[in-house]
């Protein structure tokens, strides 16, 4: 069943380039296969049969940062892992987004100590924080939907300004 049956014969559809591009980005957002700790197990659950993230075009977890758009930081980030995480982030192509999944990635969680970064936003810029220890797969999916909303609101002008700053 195609979109035609739903909408009738529309002939020509006009829209803005921005919204088409953003629509495309939301529906084929490839996350990076990158688990750190307990939250990664719930991330796997979200991928598995019961929750099935592929409904949102996310069934493909890429192990290489070069091929992914979304980094889900699933778990606690230790002082030894921080630099590695940053390098992985730097290797991802623009545009890229980050979800901090779980309390540890968001704010350190129960581990307020010498070994853990108190929030992954000290290492990479974060777009969406998902609370929970671990967050339920539904919560992660909600986080993903939130990031979709955010992407839909982005404009080329913002990108242009961002790159002017970075270059």
């Amino acid at each position: 069943m195609g979109v035609e049956q739903k909408l009738g014969n529309m002939g020509v559809v006009t829209t803005t380039l921005e919204s088409v591009v953003n629509w495309g980005r939301t529906n084929a957002m490839w996350p990076m296969l990158f688990g750190l700790a307990c939250c990664a197990i719930e991330m796997m659950s979200a991928q598995s049969s019961a929750y099935d993230m592929s409904r949102f075009g996310m069934e493909l977890m890429r192990a290489s940062p070069r091929q992914s758009d979304l980094m889900i930081v699933a778990g606690r980030v230790s002082k030894k892992m921080g630099p590695v995480l940053r390098r992985l982030y730097d290797q991802m192509p623009e545009p890229k987004w980050v979800i901090a999944m779980g309390d540890c990635a968001s704010c350190g969680g129960v581990f307020n100590n010498y070994a853990i970064f108190q929030g992954v936003d000290e290492v990479v810029p974060v777009d969406v924080f998902v609370a929970g220890c671990p967050p339920r797969p539904e919560a992660l999916i909600h986080g993903v939907m939130t990031i979709h909303e955010k992407v839909k609101g982005e404009s080329f002008k913002q990108y242009a300004e961002k790159y002017k700053q970075t270059t």
Binding site: C107, N112, D121, E122, P125
Partner: peptide, 25 residues
């Protein structure tokens, strides 16, 4: 030392926000 950092709540959000080393793009 254990390396305890003060947690951020509503009442001290701004104060900690200023000194928290956020990452750059």
């Amino acid at each position: 030392p254990l390396g305890y950092e003060e947690p951020q709540f509503t009442f001290n959000f701004d104060e900690i926000d200023l000194r928290k080393p956020y990452a750059k793009e």
